[in-house]
Amino acid sequence: MSQIEIRDVAIEYKKPKSEESFVAIQGVSLSIEKGSFVTIVGSSGCGKSTLLLALAGLIECSRGSIRVEGKDVTGPGKDRAMVFQDASLLPWRSVHGNVRFALELQRWKRDDIDERAARFVRMVGLGNFADYHPHQLSGGMRQRVNIARALAVDPQVLLMDEPFGALDAQTREVMGDELLRIWERDKKTAVFVTHSIDEAIFLGDRVVVMGRNPGHIRDVVEIDLPRPRTAAMLDSPSFIEYRRKLRDYISADMQALHMVEDIA
């Protein structure tokens, strides 16, 4: 059995101030092996973030089940840690303090907390910035803190919700490299949501392509590129082939949407 088993999951939201509900995702099934890096890609509104939040235990499934290590997900747990898009760092705490925060919440032993937080701050290359506050950092540095915070609590599964979505293209590439470098050390299972096709291919062992109306999985593409991944691979024939395939899926999804809008 895989480490993560998602079986026929549907998630419905109640629309505010009405009885109607909105189906975010439907009929989603997916197995994720321990130690693999899975990326989820899709146009906006395909429910990829919703699926990730459900994995994190932050929203409930309306139907179906999500199991991690054989146990049903009923809420947040120490086996999973989340890296958010941005602005989820406590502005009044330093870099070190923000990493500490997660350890405090999970009741790590007082004696270990400071040293452990410092270690993970160094690991993401912010050793000299431990006393800085988030507003003094660049977007890329803030996301490094976010990653350090999630890894410090030693989760089984690392969940990332468009962590580099707010960064410029160059920083984004650097952060992708960096993330893989860190990930290769102990290969924790990683689920990474993005809307960038290149990012999805570059990072993932498998790319899950999602479509919308309602959100569903269109295909799961195995990425057969050797690791460690390098920037040179971005121009390799197989990368270009993956890119073409994924782009076809997503543009078909966009066209479907335009047709719906034209009729309406």
């Binding site: 994190a56 760092l89 915070r149």
Partner: peptide, 9 residues
């Protein structure tokens, strides 16, 4: 911030 804190338990 609340959501991030909740995700860490």
């Amino acid at each position: 911030l609340v959501r991030a804190a909740i995700s860490f338990g």
